[in-house]
């Protein structure tokens, strides 16, 4: 299936989480911390909130969200 990441189009396997798809696409920075540090998934299980991105307009945990056809993901 296809998802949209910022200005890129990605092809992903069914059952892939958004976090995994983003890592596979080479994204290393998921969010900027309060003091401006780059951050990326830490816990992988919905606890740490480091993997928060905007998915179809909502702030979501990318590690807890499965990719859906046509999903739009913004890292900023």
């Amino acid at each position: 299936m296809k998802i949209y990441l910022d200005d890129r189009t990605l092809t992903v396997e069914r059952g892939t989480t958004v976090a995994a798809a983003m890592l596979n696409a080479g994204v290393s920075v998921f969010r900027e911390s309060v003091s401006g540090e780059p951050r990326a998934p830490l816990c992988g299980m919905g606890v740490c909130y480091e993997c928060m991105v905007t998915i179809d307009g909502q702030r979501e945990l990318s590690c807890q969200t499965l990719c859906q056809e046509g999903m739009r993901i913004l890292t900023r």
């Binding site: 059952g15 989480t17 995994a20 890592l23 998934p41 816990c43 992988g44």
Partner: peptide, 11 residues
Amino acid sequence: GGLQALVKSGF
């Protein structure tokens, strides 16, 4: 465990 979870979810 986090890496394990990420790998099992497609990483």
